[in-house]
Simulated scan of single mutants.
Amino acid sequence: MPVNQRIWTLEDGYKELNTIRLNFEYDLENLIETRPEVIDDNLMLIGRQVITSNQGRIDLLGINLEGSLIIIELKRDKTPRDVIAQTLDYASWIVDLSSDDISKLYQKYKGNDPNASLSKDYKTKFNKELEEEAINSSHQLIIVASEMDSSTERITNYLNRYSIPVNILFFSIFEFEGKRLLSRTWFIDPQETIENTTPPSEKAPWNEEFYCSFGHDDNRSWNDAVKYGFVSAGFGQWYTKTLKMLSIGDRIWVNIPHTGYVGVGTVSTECLIAKNQKFELFENKTIFELNTEGKYLADFKDDVEKSEYIVLVKWEKTVSLEQAVSEIGMFGNQNTICRPTSQKWLFSMKILKSRWNIQ
Rank of each mutant, 00 (worst) to 15 (best):
F126M: 04
W186A: 06
F170A: 12
R161P: 00
I142G: 05
N157V: 11
N112H: 10
L118H: 04
D189N: 13
N112D: 11
I164F: 05
D121N: 15
T124L: 06
I142W: 00
F171C: 07
E133K: 15
A134G: 02
D113Y: 12
E177S: 15
N160Y: 03
P114F: 06
T124Y: 02
N157C: 08
L182G: 03
L182Q: 10
R161G: 13
L130Y: 02
S146K: 05
F171H: 07
K128R: 12
I188S: 06
F176S: 04
L169R: 11
I188Y: 03
K108S: 12
M148F: 03
T152Q: 15
S119E: 11
W186M: 03
P114Y: 09
F126I: 12
S146G: 12
I168W: 00
A145C: 07
L159R: 04
I173M: 09
S150M: 07
K120N: 11
I164E: 01
Q140L: 13
K128I: 07
A116H: 10
R154S: 15
N167A: 06
E133V: 15
L118C: 09
F174C: 10
P165S: 01
K128C: 11
N115S: 11
L159H: 10
I188D: 08
L182E: 09
E177D: 15
I135K: 13
N136H: 10
S137H: 14
R161W: 02
E153L: 15
N167L: 01
T156I: 12
S146A: 05
L182W: 12
K179P: 01
E129L: 12
E177H: 08
L159F: 12
N136W: 08
L130N: 04
M148W: 11
P165Y: 02
I142V: 11
D121T: 13
F171M: 01
S172D: 06
T185S: 07
L130C: 05
F170N: 02
M148P: 00
S172L: 03
V166M: 08
D121P: 15
I164G: 01
R180M: 10
T124C: 00
I155N: 01
I135Q: 10
K110D: 00
K108Y: 10
E133D: 12
S150C: 03
E129I: 02
D189P: 00
R180N: 15
A116S: 14
K120L: 04
M148K: 02
T152H: 13
R154Y: 09
K108G: 03
N167Q: 01
W186E: 07
S163V: 03
